[in-house]
Simulated scan of single mutants.
Amino acid sequence: MEFFLQQVMTGLGIGSILLLVALGLALIYGSMGVINMAHGEFLMLGAYCTWALNTFFGLGLLSSLVFVFLLVGAFGWAVERGVIRFLYRRPLDTILATWGIGIILQQVVRLSAGGELRYVEMPEVLTATVSILGVTVPGYRVFVFVVVAALFALTWALMYKTDFGRRLRAVVQDRDTATCFGVDADRVYSLTFAYGAGLAGLAGALVAPLKSVSPEMGTAYVVDAFFVVVLGGVQSLLGTVVSAALLGQLTGSLAWVTNDTVAKALVLVAIVVIIRFRPQGLFVAKVRS
Rank of each mutant, 00 (worst) to 15 (best):
L117T: 15
Q6P: 07
S63E: 15
R85E: 13
I14F: 02
G30K: 05
T98Y: 03
G13I: 05
L266Q: 01
R278S: 07
L27Q: 07
S236K: 10
L246I: 15
L238F: 03
A205W: 06
S243E: 12
D224E: 11
L151V: 12
L62C: 08
Q107E: 01
D163S: 14
L151R: 03
L18Q: 07
T240C: 11
R288S: 12
S31N: 08
M44A: 15
I84M: 03
L266W: 13
G76W: 07
S16E: 00
R169T: 08
F181A: 14
G196A: 14
I35W: 00
A150Y: 00
A285Q: 09
R276L: 15
G100W: 00
V148S: 01
L71V: 14
F56I: 03
V125Q: 03
T94W: 08
S236V: 14
F4W: 09
S253Y: 01
A157M: 11
V137P: 02
S253N: 02
S253K: 04
D174M: 04
G232Y: 05
G232H: 03
D163G: 05
G139R: 10
D224W: 03
T179A: 10
K211R: 13
V223A: 10
A220H: 08
G252Q: 07
R166P: 01
L5S: 10
R90V: 09
V228R: 07
I14V: 15
G182E: 13
L117F: 15
M37I: 14
D93T: 11
S243V: 15
P209V: 07
I14R: 01
N36I: 12
L65W: 02
A170S: 02
F4R: 11
F164L: 00
L19W: 02
L126V: 04
Q235P: 04
A203L: 11
D174H: 05
L158N: 03
L210C: 02
I28Y: 07
V66G: 11
L12F: 11
G114E: 06
V120A: 05
R89W: 04
A285E: 15
L266A: 02
T261A: 11
A245P: 01
G15H: 03
A220F: 08
Q235Y: 01
V228N: 08
G198P: 11
A78E: 00
D174E: 11
A170L: 01
M37Y: 02
A245N: 02
G102I: 12
M9V: 14
A178P: 10
L199V: 08
D260I: 14
Y29C: 14
E121N: 15
A149E: 05
T251I: 03
G182W: 09
V241E: 00
L20Y: 05
G30V: 13
R85I: 13
A208E: 12
A22K: 01
Q6R: 08
L133E: 12
G15L: 00
T177R: 08
V171S: 10
K161I: 09
G13C: 06
V147G: 02
T155C: 01
L92M: 10
S63P: 04
T129E: 11
S243H: 09
R166G: 02
V228Y: 12
I132W: 00
R166A: 01
V228W: 14
A220M: 14
G115L: 06
R169L: 09
